[in-house]
Write a protein that binds this DNA or RNA. Structure first.
Lengths: 194, 194
DNA sequence: TTTATTTCTTAATAAACATCAAGTGGATTA
DNA sequence: TAATCCACTTGATGTTTATTAAGAAATAAA
């Protein structure tokens, strides 16, 4: 299992000493999800952070019997359920693998021990949240005030593998439109291209 | 000027020692904005954090000549331009006072010095970002997948003073609808109530 | 106070998007 | 192989929301 890519990402945020890393690594476990396998379910409290080595996870909540997709996580993503992990309240969201997915799993407790033990990790913790936060703010800005077609184009541009790997209905829900409408948008775009 | 409310908020997140606080206070300055006065403009890099003692600030960006409102900050809010402050890139957003507004202003540099000097402040920094992030995530969830009327009701419920203090067109833009449409929603709601 | 100016409302029309219903094609299973 | 299922497409129709334009009501300026 490839711990190195995780290390690289963290190093890119702030430096980590070798003994800190070795200490941290002890807490890792690994998990392989099949297609459509559930990672976390709503109403659970999220007590783990994961790193996606390979694969793809989406998350959604239920609104009047419909699944509303709120996020997509590709390989090299580090994430948890932000609200539940930080506030220790039950998840609203469900997390499901769209492909066979390989994960590094790190217990929340382990992370907080690292924060206590090393100032550098406390900083890493801050900077990782800052990073997540700015990314999510930017995504919001790209969506806000735009029509469905613009949102779709902006999403496709930011995630090249998206169309091949994510079913239309998941993308549609993520964009807050119906599958039928997205299908028509695609048709319109393909016509205007040729 | 009331530094105590700021202190209370921070203490609510994680404990601060008296000498840490006194050190921190040295960096404070104070600013009073008139109605419609600009706090920060787009293309500037945001190098300050502010605390709103009294008043109200909104922010927006320009899209095809229209102002698109993305945030509202009421008294007791602590904020900066997330993207610009953290990544030190130019702001996309403009920040303007909707009322006479009194602020505590803290330079970014000062904050980062506090982070270096005190582990407790590094933690405070992390927890403040976590707090901001979870709040923004929750707001997104309240909006996502909802029609304009539901979004309006959810917003009004979360901010009681809103209707009296924020002009309709600002609220409409924040909800991503036209002022005309919000006006009709209000009419419909007032009719169905009586 | 009177005049501007802005904010809000209302109506008619148009665009964006949803819903319902049916059909196609590919993949999975019996 | 046929039957079943699922993802996607297409069309007809309805709802939501935007646009344009005009007028009323509130605010600010003269």
């Amino acid at each position: 299992m490839d711990k190195q890519s995780l290390k690289n990402i963290l190093q890119g945020v702030t430096p980590i000493l070798e003994d800190e890393w070795q200490n941290f690594e002890q807490y890792f476990s690994f998990r392989r999800l099949n297609k459509n396998e559930i990672l976390w379910k709503e109403n659970e409290v999220c007590n783990h952070l994961v790193f996606i080595n390979t694969g793809l996870i989406y998350c959604f909540y239920n609104k009047d019997g419909k699944e509303i997709v709120t996020n997509l996580y590709f390989e090299n993503s580090i994430f948890y359920d932000d609200y539940s992990f930080i506030r220790q309240e039950p998840c609203v969201l469900n997390y499901v693998a769209l492909e066979v997915t390989e994960l590094i799993v790190i217990p929340r407790i382990a992370l907080y021990e690292m924060f206590d033990k090393y100032k550098s990790f406390e900083r890493l913790g801050r900077m990782m949240v800052e990073r997540n936060h700015t990314i999510s703010i930017k995504e919001q800005l790209n969506f806000n005030g735009n029509k469905a077609e613009e949102k779709y184009l902006s999403l496709v541009a930011s995630q090249p593998g998206l169309i091949q790997r994510v079913p239309l209905k998941i993308i549609a829900s993520y964009l807050n439109i119906t599958p039928e409408h997205l299908s028509r948008i695609r048709k319109k775009l393909s016509v205007s291209q040729s």
